[in-house]
């Protein structure tokens, strides 16, 4: 059963990847900066385990890098895999599976992801606009937290009570 969910979640991630490239990237032109892949990868990491989450992050990142032409391939893969690992470890470290904890995780992981990607690009001689990065550090976590309210319940659909993660704490009898 767990494997079925993992396969299902992988397909949801694939759909999110296409959606990110075909639509969400378009919204960046209007200063709306959602990261559909990051939120989905974190949700998978929290529900299916750190290893599967990191693998999904790696696979989605590689595909994203390959599909978005000009950049260096592998940077997004590394950033998403690391984000999934950090998110999973935070829960393992004792954070309770509640909506507030998830909000905190999404905020933290988004910030780490942005800084990580910028630092790697800087190391590869790309110029980083500090003002742009600063704005993104403020806007992106908020957008991702909003996105979390949609993605987390979607990933959770059909899962047993033990996977339920804070959105409905009262179980129906």
């Amino acid at each position: 059963m767990k494997l079925t969910y993992k396969v299902l979640h992988f397909f949801i991630l694939a759909a999110c990847l296409i959606l990110q490239i075909a639509f969400v990237e378009n919204l960046k032109l209007f200063s709306v900066n959602f990261d559909l892949i990051l939120v989905t990868v974190v949700a998978i990491s929290l529900m299916d385990g750190v290893i599967f989450g990191a693998f999904c992050g790696f696979a989605a990142g590689i595909l994203l890098d390959l599909m978005t032409g000009g950049g260096i391939v592998g940077i997004s893969a590394f950033a998403y895999a690391a984000s999934a690992f950090i998110a999973g470890k935070l829960i393992e470290a004792g954070l309770k599976q509640r909506i507030l904890s998830f909000t905190f995780i999404i905020f933290l992981v988004t910030e780490i992801n942005l800084i990580l990607v910028s630092v790697i690009h800087y190391l590869f001689n790309f110029n980083i606009a500090i003002s742009e990065l600063g704005l993104e550090l403020l806007v992106k976590p908020v957008c991702n937290i909003i996105l979390m309210l949609v993605i987390f319940p979607l990933i959770r659909i059909g899962m047993h009570r033990e996977y339920v993660i804070g959105f409905n704490n009262k179980e129906k009898t």
């Binding site: 750190v50 290893i51 990191a54 693998f55 790696f58 590689i62 890098d65 260096i72 391939v73 592998g74 940077i75 893969a77 590394f78 895999a81 690391a82 690992f85 790697i120 590869f124």
Partner: peptide, 22 residues
């Protein structure tokens, strides 16, 4: 330990891909 090994493999793989791509 298993988690760390998997993460290590992913990091090494990413570094190889980044270098080849760069």
């Amino acid at each position: 330990f298993k988690n760390l090994i998997v993460l290590g493999i992913i990091i090494v793989l990413c570094l190889v891909i980044i270098t080849v791509s760069f």
